[in-house]
Design a binder for these strands. Structure first.
Lengths: 194, 194
DNA sequence: AAATGACCATATTCGTAAAATGGTCAGAAT
DNA sequence: ATTCTGACCATTTTACGAATATGGTCATTT
């Protein structure tokens, strides 16, 4: 390839920089430098910094969708699938540098773009869960309920069990998380007896 | 009363000021002024600003404990009591100016003392739920489980249903909150059938 | 003995000058 | 002709010292 694909260079450089330094600390000069490209060139592909950021987010979103699709086994029960997909997604999220950097930036500086980016990624997860819940209700595996409410609660519960709880007690192991997840969402706490 | 109770004056003034202006924007000069007291006088009762703040928090905590005790009916089922107490506490929390001001201050400035104050108040709610869960497990009303985990999840769930969800859809009404709360925690989502 | 407010060291805010950044565009490179 | 570029511009962000405000003390007053 005599003539390099400048668009790809820019995207790759931007992905690197946003992951490494976050939104605010990524400058267009820097992206140009990393991409070995004049700054003006970036603006022939993306109209501004936010749109470039969007492109990178979009890549991540596609990755996430693939991960989710890959984990689904249509022959298995809903709660099994849910568990496996959330597991894979949160694993991905906790290892992906872009997530880490954006979360840190949100905490530390409250950069609106970092916040929005995280929201976009979260909403992908949410709408994914929502669709699966609808499907499961259709199959009669899950009681009739508002899928939006349920999906938000599910994700929140998962985050509480996997991370927030760790500030208050030693972390739950994978098996415990699994069983509490089932206990709360599937079976219920109430002791049916006497 | 010829000689006024300066300690009470200080406490009252501090409560007013912290509620009205938050932690950071409350100055010792101001408290002294409101209390009609010399600044030095405050330091004869409280060794510093943080300890004065603690005193005010403590008052609120006592109020909260009273509210909780008042809502408990030992003859009613656990989930009824839980529902009523959380309702009353979150109602109290959402109307108490000190809460509102501290939450705002935390969001806006990240004042560590505001954060710590809110954490203290939350931990009171948590340990209250924890105790009740333990009691309910003892009675066999609730399946055996770690009360710490369960209490955190319960509070979180309640907050999601009552406030966080409102960013994504129109708010649930009281009846809906009640029924989702039961659905998730008590009965479980799983359709037991065929 | 209790209360006070002027006082002190430190922290915060403010104004401004300097530096950095997002975005443009006339011209260079191909 | 088309693509690419980096000097350039307007605006934003930072750096920093001066001025102000604040938490806390203590010699003096009540």
């Amino acid at each position: 390839m005599a003539v390099v694909d400048r668009r790809q260079q820019v995207i790759k450089a931007a992905a690197k920089s946003f992951s490494l330094f976050g939104y605010k600390a990524t400058t267009m000069d820097q992206v140009a430098k990393i991409a070995n490209v004049g700054k003006g060139t970036i603006y022939t592909f993306f109209s501004n910094k936010e749109q470039l950021f969007d492109e990178i987010l979009h890549t991540v979103i596609l990755e996430m969708k693939n991960i989710a699709e890959r984990e689904i086994r249509r022959d298995k029960p809903f709660f099994d699938n849910l568990q496996r997909v959330l597991d894979a997604l949160l694993e991905f999220r906790s290892e992906h540098e872009l997530f880490i950097k954006l979360s840190q930036e949100k905490r530390e500086f409250g950069t609106p773009q970092a916040q929005e980016g995280l929201d976009k990624l979260e909403s992908v997860i949410l709408s994914y869960i929502e669709r699966e819940v609808e499907y499961a209700i259709g199959l009669g595996e899950v009681k009739p309920c508002d899928p939006k409410v349920v999906s938000v609660v599910m994700l929140k519960l998962y985050i509480v069990l996997t991370s927030e709880l760790n500030k208050l007690r030693e972390p739950l192991d994978k098996e415990q998380i699994k069983s509490y997840f089932r206990l709360f969402l599937a079976e219920g706490l109430e002791q049916k007896q006497s």
